[in-house]
Amino acid sequence: MCMELSFRLVTTPEDIETTARLADEIWKEHYISIITAEQINYMLDKFQSVPAISDQIGNQGYEYYLMLVDGDPAGYLAIKPEASKLFLSKFYLLKAYRGRGFGSRAIGFLADLCKERKLSAIWLTVNRHNASSIAVYERNGFRIVRTQVADIGGGYVMDDYVMEKEVLSAEA
């Protein structure tokens, strides 16, 4: 049975609250085996709280999309178009929806956005110990281009791979 996946641009306070709730649930479930609970809470507050998401949308050029499966929130994406590439800042899916092809379908949605906007690639950062997500990205044509350690304050760092997927131009 193929469930319907749709994407809705986050524009309302209600959508921002839904996104922050999804972040809280997903991060606390998925990242606890990778980083400490203290770092999870710090990052949720700094990057995925209602005020942080509102600021990213309103002042920093980010676009958030809710991923809806049969109309129910299942995850979310955050992107930031750049000069020639699309930065995939956030890509999170509830555990119940993982392993069912929704991630690959979301990457297809992003590739289509790149083509519409004439962007050549999608790039992202992913924790170097997040093997399941890295595997999904690699299956969908991303490759590791470098490692990166970023100080995010509070005594925490993000120890990431930078991955990139080339997207054929609309003319190709």
Rank of each mutant, 00 (worst) to 15 (best):
residue 1 M to R: 11
residue 3 M to S: 14
residue 5 L to G: 14
residue 5 L to K: 09
residue 5 L to T: 11
residue 6 S to Q: 10
residue 7 F to Q: 06
residue 7 F to D: 03
residue 8 R to S: 12
residue 9 L to V: 15
residue 11 T to M: 15
residue 13 P to R: 09
residue 15 D to K: 01
residue 16 I to N: 03
residue 16 I to S: 05
residue 18 T to V: 10
residue 18 T to M: 04
residue 20 A to T: 08
residue 20 A to I: 06
residue 23 A to M: 04
residue 23 A to E: 02
residue 23 A to W: 00
residue 24 D to N: 09
residue 25 E to I: 09
residue 26 I to C: 00
residue 27 W to P: 11
residue 28 K to L: 13
residue 29 E to W: 13
residue 29 E to C: 03
residue 31 Y to C: 11
residue 32 I to N: 13
residue 33 S to Y: 09
residue 34 I to W: 05
residue 35 I to S: 01
residue 35 I to Y: 06
residue 37 A to V: 07
residue 38 E to R: 08
residue 39 Q to H: 13
residue 40 I to T: 14
residue 41 N to D: 08
residue 42 Y to W: 06
residue 43 M to Q: 03
residue 44 L to S: 15
residue 46 K to S: 07
residue 46 K to N: 10
residue 46 K to Y: 07
residue 46 K to W: 13
residue 47 F to A: 09
residue 50 V to I: 07
residue 51 P to S: 05
residue 53 I to W: 01
residue 53 I to M: 02
residue 55 D to H: 15
residue 56 Q to Y: 15
residue 57 I to A: 11
residue 64 Y to P: 01
residue 64 Y to T: 01
residue 66 L to C: 08
residue 67 M to E: 05
residue 68 L to T: 10
residue 68 L to P: 11
residue 69 V to F: 15
residue 71 G to K: 00
residue 75 G to M: 00
residue 75 G to L: 14
residue 77 L to Q: 04
residue 79 I to P: 02
residue 80 K to Q: 05
residue 80 K to N: 04
residue 80 K to R: 12
residue 82 E to Q: 15
residue 85 K to I: 09
residue 86 L to S: 00
residue 87 F to A: 11
residue 90 K to F: 03
residue 91 F to E: 00
residue 92 Y to I: 05
residue 92 Y to A: 02
residue 94 L to C: 03
residue 94 L to V: 08
residue 95 K to T: 06
residue 96 A to T: 03
residue 98 R to A: 04
residue 98 R to D: 12
residue 100 R to M: 10
residue 101 G to A: 03
residue 103 G to Y: 00
residue 103 G to L: 00
residue 105 R to A: 14
residue 108 G to W: 04
residue 110 L to W: 01
residue 111 A to H: 01
residue 112 D to E: 04
residue 112 D to S: 15
residue 113 L to G: 14
residue 114 C to L: 08
residue 114 C to H: 14
residue 115 K to D: 14
residue 115 K to C: 05
residue 117 R to P: 03
residue 117 R to E: 10
residue 118 K to I: 14
residue 119 L to S: 03
residue 120 S to G: 10
residue 121 A to P: 11
residue 123 W to E: 01
residue 123 W to G: 02
residue 123 W to K: 08
residue 123 W to T: 03
residue 125 T to P: 06
residue 127 N to T: 04
residue 129 H to Y: 10
residue 132 S to I: 09
residue 132 S to P: 08
residue 134 I to H: 09
residue 135 A to T: 01
residue 137 Y to D: 10
residue 138 E to C: 00
residue 138 E to I: 00
residue 142 F to M: 13
residue 142 F to E: 09
residue 143 R to A: 08
residue 144 I to P: 15
residue 146 R to M: 07
residue 146 R to I: 00
residue 146 R to T: 07
residue 147 T to C: 04
residue 151 D to R: 04
residue 153 G to N: 08
residue 155 G to T: 05
residue 155 G to Y: 09
residue 156 Y to E: 06
residue 156 Y to G: 13
residue 158 M to W: 07
residue 158 M to S: 06
residue 159 D to R: 08
residue 160 D to C: 01
residue 161 Y to R: 04
residue 163 M to N: 00
residue 164 E to S: 05
residue 164 E to N: 14
residue 165 K to H: 12
residue 168 L to Y: 15
residue 169 S to E: 06
residue 170 A to Q: 12
residue 171 E to A: 11
